[in-house]
Each structure stands twice: as C-alpha cells, then as structure tokens.
Amino acid sequence: MRTLAHSFYMTLRHFRNLMRQPLYIAFTLVQPIIWLVLFGQLFKKVVLLPGFGASAYVDFLTPGVVIMTVLFGAGWSGMGIIRDLDLGVMDRFLVSPVSRVALIAGRLIQLALIAVIQSVLIVALGMILGARFPGGARGVGLLILCAVLLAVPIGALSSAMALVARKEETVIAASNFILLPLTFLSSVFMAQNLMPGWIQAVARFNPVEWAVVAGRSALSAHMNWPLVATRIGLLVALTIITAGLATRAFRIYQRSV
C-alpha cells in the first residue's frame, strides 16, 4: 500500500518535471518523424529485394521505429538518476522512509506511459504516411504492449547502471555503446531473413528483436500467436529480473557512500 502510494507520488513528480521541458518533449516527438520519413525514403527500395516479405517499407518500418524510439527513451533514463544523485535529491529520499521500490517504480511507470503515448503517435504518423496494418486495433495494442515491455527493463537496467556507476560520463558512454548495436542487431530496419547469419543468431538473444518481431507479427494479417506469446513471455521475464536488479542497485550505492 505504502509502496503503491509512493510510486504514484514519484510518477507524478517525474511527469510534472517532464511537462516543464516543452523543448525536450518537442524533440522526442520530432525524432521519430525524422526516422520514419528519412529511413522510409532511404530504404524505400529494399522491399523489392526478393524475400523481404512486406509490400510497402513504411508498413515494415513503423513498428521498427516504435520500438527504436522507445528503446532510446528508456536507454537514457539513467541520466535522471544521475541528476538526482548530483542534486542530492536521491540521498534525501534514501534517508527518508520512502519505499525503495517506489524510487525505481516511479521512473519505470513514467517510462511505460511515455512509451504508450509515443507508440500511438508513431503508429498514427505511419498511417498518415500510407502504412496499413491488417492486424487492426488488437495488433496495435500488442505492439504497444511490446514497446512497454521493452521500455521498462531497459529503463531499469539504465537506472541500475546509473546507481552503480554514479558518473554521467559512464552512463553516456555505456548507453551509446549499447543502444545503437542493439538496434542494428535486430530487424528494426531490415527483414530478418535478409540479415547475415551471425546477426540472425545474435538477434535471437536481443530483447529489441523480441519486441519488434512480436509487434510486427501482431500488426500483420496473419499473426503468429506462438511467436508473439513467447516473445512477450521473454520480455516479461526480463522485466521482472531487471526491476529486481535496479532495486538491488540501491544497496550497492548505499554501500559505496
């Protein structure tokens, strides 16, 4: 009960602070538009490759951009922890009776809500650009679920890393090091069966790939139920593990201060 109430207050805090940064919000909205238009034009002809599978690249790209946008948003969430550490806000909370779980949960709930908003906007934008999703509302709903289930564990990992590393530079370097490779070692931009064999092999262990494959299948005319269910299952498992790690990270942090 206390944890729930505290999580709610923390979520409120993060949302309120976010709303005070209209420029930041503007950039996060413009970014996916650029991805969709830019990559949509750049790779327009790849659908002509034999075996690509999709008839229009924008159909294929839209769920990819949803996942990528959510991934990057979540991947940088540790910076918020760094900011709280530098300001002394984190220490102030840690000497108060606030629930430790709530300190992480507040951020993750905010990430999840942002992921939902971003997904809806990008899907709408994709449709304006001519994308068609035979999977319908159910498909879009499942894609959003996948996006949320990617945002939460990535956000939890980023937070955990920030608590342990405690340095802005480390978090920036690690995020840069991880996020782009995670994107390109998946079928965000390129059909799975056209990727080199080794990338296909690596992608099987990539949560970004789980999310994008499941989301894309959910949007297609013939959803592959077992595929979607197993990938969602994997993402749920990852969410639980990483949320546990992030809460644990407080103990590591407190041992080092």
Binding site: H6, R13, R16, N17, Q21, D84, D86, L87, V89, S96
Partner: peptide, 20 residues
Amino acid sequence: KSGVDSEATGRENLTLQGRV
C-alpha cells in the same frame, strides 16, 4: 548537497517530502 529538486517548485518539493 541541497536535495532540492530544481525542476519543481518550492511548494511541490515540500509537499512531496511531506507525503513521503
């Protein structure tokens, strides 16, 4: 270190602290 959330108002800072 201060411990004040610089993006929140004085009232918001105090209110959150009280709720905790």
